[in-house]
């Protein structure tokens, strides 16, 4: 009984504690923001791990899908709930933002999932290095599209999301962003975990290990690839939406190849095909980024260096194909996460 619900209990407790800390302002806004970035990074790295780790393809355009989610949910939020210079009066009662905020984030995710088709459809015939080039192209297509759309600010960027959040806080005073980042992070891991542990989702690993055998053994490889790419990019879109509302400002430049590389670093640091590895590495990586902040631009010399050292001495990453419960089998007695 306790074993069955222990993870749920821990998560609820953790969510409660974080919300309470944010509500009482026990820690500085800076630490809170870092915590929220941690959540965003966890979604990013674990969703990218689905493609790069479980399916064995090399996607290096993850930030592109994040960008779609960020813009769609930002524009939608500003359009619906705030008075804006370009979009005019709010289309809906601003008070509704409290209820509709998660819907907006999910719509951003769905839009990103549709852009995932940009990679999913070519993947039927292409794989490996060639597909990696396509993901890179997808990243550039998305950024260039947005840079050339003047109505949403073009390359200057887009803002106004803070007003949506303050609308929400006017109705009920709670640290909404903290709550939603936590909920979406847990939700994403939960969806991924359930997907890859079902027989249906194990088709993803079958494709990774031997695609020909998978197709012959009745796995509909095209369908699995489509679902996997769309799920991965959809979750990236959700991460993007959350990111946009945390920062309160988005511009296309912040979703370029550098951001995609950050996601890749987190996946390889954590280990392929390991969700707990991805979570762990996202947490470590976020802390590392903050600790290295005084180095400023030198940071981007140090972090790739860390990656080189990692590839030399521990190419399989922190966890590499294993979950927490594989390393500490005794943990299985205390929890079941499905």
């Amino acid at each position: 009984m306790l074993r069955k619900y222990s993870v749920q209990l821990i998560l609820i407790a953790l969510g409660g504690i974080i919300t309470y800390i944010a509500y009482q302002e026990l820690v500085s806004l800076y630490i809170l923001t870092v915590l929220m970035f941690m959540g965003v990074n966890i979604i990013l790295s674990s969703s990218l791990n689905l493609v790069n780790g479980y399916m064995g393809e090399f996607s290096c355009g993850h930030a592109g899908f994040m960008c779609v989610g960020a813009y769609v949910s930002s524009v939608l939020g500003v359009l619906l709930f705030t008075k804006d210079k370009i979009f005019g009066a709010p289309l809906l009662n601003p008070d509704l933002a409290v209820y509709l905020f998660p819907v907006i984030i999910i719509i951003g995710g769905i839009a990103a999932a549709l852009f995932g088709l940009l990679v999913a459809l070519p993947s039927y015939k292409t794989r490996g290095d060639y597909l990696a080039i396509i993901t890179l192209a997808a990243n550039y297509i998305i950024i260039s599209l947005i840079q050339n759309m003047d109505i949403i600010g073009g390359s200057r960027g887009f803002m106004g999301m803070k007003k949506v959040i303050s609308n929400m806080e006017d109705v009920v005073y709670l640290p909404w962003m903290v709550i939603w980042v936590f909920v979406f992070t847990v939700g994403s891991i939960w969806i991924l975990r359930r997907y890859v542990s079902s027989v249906f989702g194990k088709g993803v690993s079958a494709i990774c290990q031997d695609e020909v055998a998978a197709e012959i053994m009745s796995v509909n490889t095209n369908k699995i690839k489509t679902i996997t790419f769309m799920l991965s990019s959809g979750l990236a879109g959700i991460a993007g939406g959350l990111f946009a509302y945390i920062v309160g400002y988005v511009n296309p430049g912040s979703f370029n190849i550098l951001k995609s590389t950050e996601a890749l670093v987190m996946v390889y640091l954590g280990g392929m095909a390991s969700l707990s590895g991805s979570v762990l590495s996202a947490i470590l990586f976020t802390i590392l980024l903050e600790l290295l902040r005084p180095l400023q631009i030198i940071k981007w010399v140090v972090i790739p260096l860390i990656l080189i050292v990692l590839m030399q001495f521990r190419p399989e990453g922190i966890m590499g194909n294993r979950e927490l419960s594989d390393i500490f089998p005794k943990l299985k007695r205390f929890y079941r996460f499905k």
């Binding site: 027989v199 194990k202 088709g203 079958a206 009745s218 796995v219």
Partner: peptide, 10 residues
Amino acid sequence: KVAQHGWLDY
């Protein structure tokens, strides 16, 4: 088990 993909009901 994965070879049963063609017979999944979900």
